[in-house]
């Protein structure tokens, strides 16, 4: 089972590497959204410092939603997905591998680049570190819950908008905890409980959603 999991992760990472423009586009979108906000709300440093964690997290949510559509779409089109459903290996394990790979190519880059964005918003080093950690702890939930939406809307017309409609309301707890962590640190409080809760949500999503995703894939492909 572990070898199946690793094989799926390795395969999806290789595919992502071959189509690195897709990965880059998501990342550029993330940066552009964050950059647009000061142009809209004004460049008052105090205001920007206050809203920075929320803005970065909202942008991370949008970037995740945007990247979800291609999670299963290409496998569905070339028939790989059907082979996965027929394979003797448990589908939930294959799904787990695919989602982990998705997180590695979207969640991790977003987490790393958020440090630079934190500098642009001039938040202090502790808060920036917490923001980065909160993204690291929370973005797995975005990939797992998002994969549920992606598998339900597979091959539907207008799937992109539909995914965001299905998934964004479910992202709200992660957004609240994620943005709350850096805000707490910025106002001199301890951010650890937020990070632990985010990690707990990630683990919960990792345990529960693969079954839902597997069921949804079977429903969508049959």
């Amino acid at each position: 089972m572990l070898s199946t999991f690793l094989a799926v992760v390795r395969r999806d990472l290789m595919l992502a590497f071959r189509q690195r423009m897709d990965v880059m586009n998501t990342l550029v979108f993330f940066v552009v959204v964050v950059t647009i906000v000061p142009l809209g709300v004004g460049a008052d440093p105090n205001l920007l410092r206050a809203i920075a964690p929320g803005v970065v997290w909202v942008a991370a949510l949008l970037a995740a939603v945007l990247s979800l559509q291609r999670l299963f779409a290409s496998d569905y089109q070339d028939g790989t997905l059907e082979q996965m459903l027929l394979a003797g290996e448990p589908l939930a394990v294959i799904v787990l591998g695919k989602v982990v790979a998705h997180w590695l190519v979207t969640g991790i880059p977003v987490t790393v680049i958020s440090i630079l964005l934190a500098l642009m918003f001039d938040i202090d080093a502790d808060a920036a570190m917490t923001l980065c950690l909160s993204l690291a702890a929370g973005t797995p939930v975005l990939s797992f819950l998002g994969a549920v939406g992606a598998s339900l809307t597979l091959s539907l017309r207008g799937a992109g908008v539909l995914i965001s409609l299905l998934v964004l309301p479910l992202y709200i707890p992660v957004l609240i905890l994620g943005a709350g962590a850096a805000e707490a640190v910025a106002s001199g409080l301890d951010g650890t409980p937020y990070l632990l809760l985010l990690a707990a949500l990630s683990l919960l999503a990792m345990v529960l959603t693969p079954w839902a995703i597997a069921a949804a894939l079977r429903i969508s492909v049959e």
């Binding site: 819950l145 549920v148 339900l152 299905l166 309301p169 479910l170 709200i172 707890p173 609240i176 905890l177 949500l201 529960l208 959603t209 839902a212 069921a215 949804a216 429903i219």
Partner: peptide, 17 residues
């Protein structure tokens, strides 16, 4: 599937909000 995922999420959403 969506309703089940939603109903598990509703308490989490409520308490986080």
């Amino acid at each position: 599937v969506l309703a089940l995922v939603g109903v598990v999420n509703v308490p989490i959403i409520y308490f986080s909000v």
